[in-house]
Structures are given as C-alpha cells and as structure tokens.
Design a binder for these strands. Structure first.
Length: 266
DNA sequence: AACGGAACCTGAAAGC
DNA sequence: TGCTTTCAGGTTCCGT
C-alpha cells in the first residue's frame, strides 16, 4: 500500500496521538520488523515524550525527548488507532501514548513483515539520503532534468530511486508517466527539458490526487480488497486507454509491473 | 559500475 | 469445492 500519499496519511493518523504525548506502553508482538533488539527498542520508547512526527518520502520519523525512531511501512504496513484492548490481525507493534490524561493505542499492522521499525540516536542514513520530497519541497523541474540527464536507466526505474525524489513508488511512477505521456522505458537521459517539465507537474498532481482520496477520519487505505481501483491506468491492463481508447498493456521494468499505453506514451 | 533476478514474507485472487 | 499458481504499492543482496 504505502507510497508517499499513504505514508502521509499514516503520519496524519499518528501525529495527533503521539505528538506531545508520553509513551506509556510498548508491546512488540513480532521482532522481525525491528532492526535492533526488542529490549533496546522498548527501552528507547517507553517513558519518553514524542516531540514531533515527520515524514520524508516513505519514511516516518518520531523525534523523542531523547533519540529518534523510524518507521517504514514496507509493502503492507499501516498504523491504525485501536479502540479496544485486543490485538488486531497482523499486529506487530503496539504503542500506547498519554496526552492530557488520555491514553490512546496505536498499532502497527503488517502482514508481510517487509516494514521496519528502528530506534537511533540521530537521523539514519536512509533518511538523510532521501532526495527532495514532492509534498514538502515541491518538484523542481530543472533539478529533476539535471538528475535524469545523468542516468541511462529507464525513466521509470530512475523515478523509483529514493535519492532522486523521495516517496515515488510503482503506482505513482506509472500514473505520472502516463499523465506526462512519456514511455516508461525511455532512457532517463533521453527526456527533453519540456518533457521533464510535464513529468514534474504530473508527479505532484498524481500524489496530491491520491492523497485527496484518503479522506475522513476513517483509517483505511485506498484500494483495500473489494474497493474500486481509484487509479487512472495502474491495475488496468487489458482495459482501454482513457485518453486514446487504445489498449493498456503491462510490461516488467526492473522487476516491477508497469502499465502503459504505447500509443500515447512516447 | 550496472543490471537482472532472487530473497525477504504472507494473503488474496485467479486459474484449473 | 479445493488445490495450485500468480501476484502484490518496497528494499536489499548477490552473482554476472
């Protein structure tokens, strides 16, 4: 689930609960999501106050009164606010936080266990090395053009590099390249400046559009099982292109499924 | 150095 | 119905 918009949604779920709150209970139900030991992780959280909850790209950062914690949702992770006391399905970590004499319980759910949670005394390399975040920093077309000029990988593969831009995943790359009418297989360096201009706008628009679908207080990701596919071409291989009515095909790039309209993405 | 492929995991959906 | 295969929005490691 999680690309930039979903991780931003997760931030909006946990920030009001954790921000300014004291962590009063920690329960590690599956230590495989941790990088350090369960003991050290618990000790770094328990009894500490959360000063801020930030997001960059697909990473979440908790700034504590002492040290920091980082959460990456991997492929299937999500943070939810729990009402009862029972563990939820796929719950791997539980953090209870008290603020204004009220205690609330956040749960990290992750069926596939690709997510990670770690504590550190300062910013971790994966965080420091992130490129500009489209929501926080905007997408600078000139800078993006320069960066793409130096790469010979397909443009879609380049967009997935988190040091180039932070937060773009398989869906946003697919959607933005379609909106910009650029073939995802094109070598990154082959894009003209004006094409990168279109791409830069398309990236931001696609992210903002996906985020706008994550509405209301309800804790739910877009496109849960059973929900309609909200994307323009992602997951729509075999259907008709919404722009030219041609066929949407699916190829593999860098091991990732990639939907495109070969007629209008050039 | 660069690049494809496998690995890490589990569950849902599609295929037979 | 039920068993098997395929696929999944991320990242990292390994071998060529």
């Amino acid at each position: 689930m999680p690309e930039l918009p979903e991780v931003e949604f997760a931030r909006r779920v946990i920030a009001p609960v954790l921000g300014g709150a004291e962590i009063v209970a920690v329960s590690i139900r599956d230590a495989r999501i941790l990088e350090g030991s369960a003991r050290a992780t618990e000790a770094a959280l328990l009894g500490h106050r959360v000063r801020a909850v930030d997001r960059r790209g697909k990473w979440l950062r908790l700034s504590l009164d002492e040290g920091r914690a980082f959460s990456h949702l991997g492929m299937t992770g999500k943070w939810v606010l729990a009402e009862g006391d029972e563990p939820l399905r796929f719950e791997r970590l539980r953090v209870d936080a008290r603020k204004a004499r009220r205690t609330r319980s956040l749960r990290y759910l992750d069926p596939r266990l690709f997510g990670r949670f770690l504590v550190a005394s300062e910013d971790i390399p994966a965080w420091r090395e992130l490129g500009p975040d489209p929501l926080l920093d905007g997408v600078d077309a000139d800078a993006l053009f320069d960066a793409l000029q130096r790469r010979k990988a397909p443009v879609k593969v380049a967009l997935l590099d988190q040091t180039l831009l932070a937060g773009i995943g398989n869906i946003q790359a697919t959607e933005a390249l379609f909106a910009a009418q650029i073939d995802p297989r094109r070598p990154a360096a082959s894009l003209a400046r004006r094409e990168v201009g279109r791409l830069a706008k398309a990236i931001l628009r696609s992210i903002e559009r996906t985020l706008s679908l994550e509405t209301g207080p309800e804790i739910a990701y877009v496109e849960e099982p059973g929900a309609p596919n909200p994307f323009v071409i992602y997951g729509r291989q075999g259907e008709r292109c919404p722009r030219c009515r041609g066929p949407l095909e699916k190829i593999t790039l860098a091991g990732r499924g990639t939907v495109l309209c070969a007629a209008c993405q050039r």
